[in-house]
Nucleic acid binder design. Sequence first.
DNA 1: ATGGTAGAGCATCTA
Length: 259
Amino acid sequence: MPRFATWNVNSLKVRQERVEQWLTDIQPDIVCFQETKLADAAFPQLAFESLGFSSAHHGEGRWNGVAILARNGLADVSVGFADGVEPDSEARVMTARCDGITIVSVYVPNGRVVGSDHYEYKLSWLDRLGSHLDAVTAPGDAVIVAGDFNVAPADVDVYDPAAFEGETHVTKPERERLGALLDRGLTDVFRQQYPGAERVFSWWDYRRGDFHEGRGMRIDLVLGSQPIADRVEWCIIDRNARKGKMPSDHAPVIVDLAD
DNA sequence: ATGGTAGAGCATCTA
C-alpha cells in the first residue's frame, strides 16, 4: 500500500535531521516538500538516497524551493510551469512521475496583503497551475497535486474566520481559484475522508503560542484525481511533527493509497 | 500594547 506525504519543512537545511527521523518513522513511498530554501547544489540528494529515496529538487536559494522523493524512482521530472509561457520567477512547482502517478509538488505564493502585487501574483499563479495540469496530465490519469496552497478551502479550515477578515488565505478570489482546480476533477483528499471534521489544521503561526492554543489553518492539501481519490484508504495530518524542538510551522499530510 | 517567532543572512525581507 503506497504511502504518500507532503510537508512544508520551512528550510530543509535547518530541518534535515528532523526530516530524516520523520522519514524513518513514517516510511512514506512518495514525498513532496515545500520551502526547502535551498539552491539545487545544496540539496542533500545523497542523504535521501541513503534512506532509500530517489529525489529531485527545484530551488533558488534563499526562499521557496520544492522537492519530490520516491522509493521506486522518478521519471519525467520537470521544474516550473509547463504551460509554454514565460518561466515563473520563483521556484514553486515541480512535476514527476512515480508508481504510475503524476506528482505535482506546489508551494503557492502567500499573497501577503489583499490587493497587493503579490496577491495578484498568487491569483494568477493558481490560474497557471490549472494550465500546467492541462499540459502535464490527460483525463483519466492518476494525479496528485500536493503542497502548501496558502488557501484555507472553507471557514471550517480556519480557527476563527472573523480573525481573518480582510486577510489573505480566506478571500473569495483565492477560494474561487482553488475551487476551479477542484472543478477540474481533483478531490481534497482530507475533506473527502472527514467531511464533517472542523478545526483540523496543518499550519500554525510560530507566534503567541498558536499551536498549543489551537489557532491554525488547514492550508496544506493533497488533491487527487478520481483514480487517486478512489484509492484513498487513510489520511491524517501529522501534528506530532509540529511538536518538540525546532519544528516547521507546518505539519505533514499523509495519505495511504490502496494498491 | 496593532504585539508575537522563525529562517536567511547581516539589513531587512518573507512568512
